[in-house]
Each structure stands twice: as structure tokens, then as C-alpha cells.
């Protein structure tokens, strides 16, 4: 709780400095939020050039609209929200979808096969394999943009459901449902991978 108050206090201090004309304070805001913004952009946008353009667009938009920030959420959440919306608009322009229905899920036969051979109890040795990191990254990359993003925000950035709903605008129930499905797809795909690549 104290931490949240401190964050808000810091946010207010930084925003006031920027609004008073001290643009150098904005560099602190960039430093504080760059990681979160980068994670969202990398998970939602595939091309390197678009990612850079979007990151710049996000911060310039945040700077321009800083006067309108009401401190109803953390500054980082507000900037993450701008990032998410910028990515959504970009995907819409490119006519790309966020979640391609169930096309990403394995069919029942594949899951059954993976479970028959499932040697998940031997998984520990597999985890130790350096190859696992590459496979994990590969499988996460294959997930739909929205699934990748929420998995990253929840598990890597350790944001709460409330913060993720604020960023994405998804209802809490939908967010939980997507998160459950994303984890399940990932688990099934890793199991299948393990079956295909015996150690």
C-alpha cells in the first residue's frame, strides 16, 4: 500500500515537473516505463521498424496528453494503456487480428498423442536443457498477439489482473479466460514439442 502511495507521489512529482516546462523529467518517465512499453510492443507487433516507430509514437502521445492525466491509475499503467491502444490501431490498419479464434489451439488428436507420450515427469531434465529456452521463446512467439501480451504482463511483468484490465480494456472474466487458454495452449505445445524431440 505504501509502495502504491510512493508511486503516486513520484508520478505526481514527475508530471508536475514536466508540465512546468522541465522536459528532462520526461526522460525519467521514459526510463521508468520503457521496459513495460517494450514488452507490449514486442509481443503485439512483429516487424522491427514498426516497433521503433510505435514506441516513439507512444511517448510523444504521452507527452502531449500528460496534462490530461488524472492520476486515477499509475503513470506506468496509463502509458501502457496508450501503448496497447497504439498497437491495436496499428494491427487494425494492417488488418491483422489479435486472437485468431481457435486456430492456434492444437486439435484433440495432437493433444492426445502428446499426452500418451507425455513424459512430463521427465520434464525436469528437459528443463535443464538449454534448448528449452529457445523452444519456449519459439512457442510463445507463435501464440496470438493478445495471448503473448497477457502472458508477459502477468508472468514476466508481474502485473495484477486489475492493472492488465486497465491496460487492455478487457473485462476481468475475459482476461482470466484468455490467460487460462494461453497457458493451456503453451503447455500442450511444449508437451508436443518434447514428444517430437526426444532427448
Amino acid at each position: 500500500m505504501t509502495h502504491i502511495h510512493e508511486d503516486k507521489h513520484d508520478d505526481q512529482f514527475l508530471v508536475k515537473r514536466v508540465l512546468d516546462g522541465d522536459t528532462s523529467a520526461f526522460s525519467i518517465i521514459i526510463r521508468n516505463t520503457e521496459r513495460l512499453v517494450t514488452q507490449i510492443i514486442f509481443k503485439m507487433i512483429a516487424t522491427e521498424e514498426d516497433r521503433k516507430d510505435l514506441a516513439q509514437e507512444v511517448y510523444l502521445k504521452a507527452f502531449k496528453n500528460l496534462k490530461g492525466f488524472q492520476f486515477q491509475s499509475k503513470l506506468s499503467t496509463w502509458i501502457a494503456q496508450i501503448t496497447y491502444n497504439a498497437c491495436i490501431n496499428h494491427l487494425r490498419k494492417k488488418k491483422l487480428t489479435l486472437v485468431d479464434n481457435d486456430a492456434w489451439e492444437l486439435d484433440d488428436t495432437e493433444i492426445l498423442q502428446s499426452k500418451e507420450h507425455s513424459a512430463w515427469n521427465e520434464m525436469e531434465s528437459f528443463i535443464l536443457n538449454k534448448e528449452m529456452i529457445r523452444i519456449l521463446q519459439f512457442e510463445i512467439e507463435k501464440l496470438p498477439s493478445l495471448y503473448k501480451t497477457i502472458i508477459t504482463l502477468y508472468h514476466n511483468e508481474e502485473l495484477s489482473y486489475k492493472e492488465i484490465t486497465e491496460i487492455t480494456g478487457l473485462p476481468a472474466g475475459t482476461l482470466k479466460n484468455y490467460l487460462f487458454r494461453a497457458r493451456k495452449i503453451l503447455r500442450d505445445r511444449i508437451a508436443l514439442h518434447y514428444k517430437k524431440e526426444p532427448l
Partner: peptide, 12 residues
């Protein structure tokens, strides 16, 4: 196990 590994992945 799976998510313990995912949480260790380097950030982009």
C-alpha cells in the same frame, strides 16, 4: 515448471 522457466526468460 513451465511457468517458472517462462518467468526467467530475458525481457525483450
Amino acid at each position: 515448471m513451465l511457468f517458472a522457466e517462462i518467468e526467467k526468460l530475458p525481457a525483450d
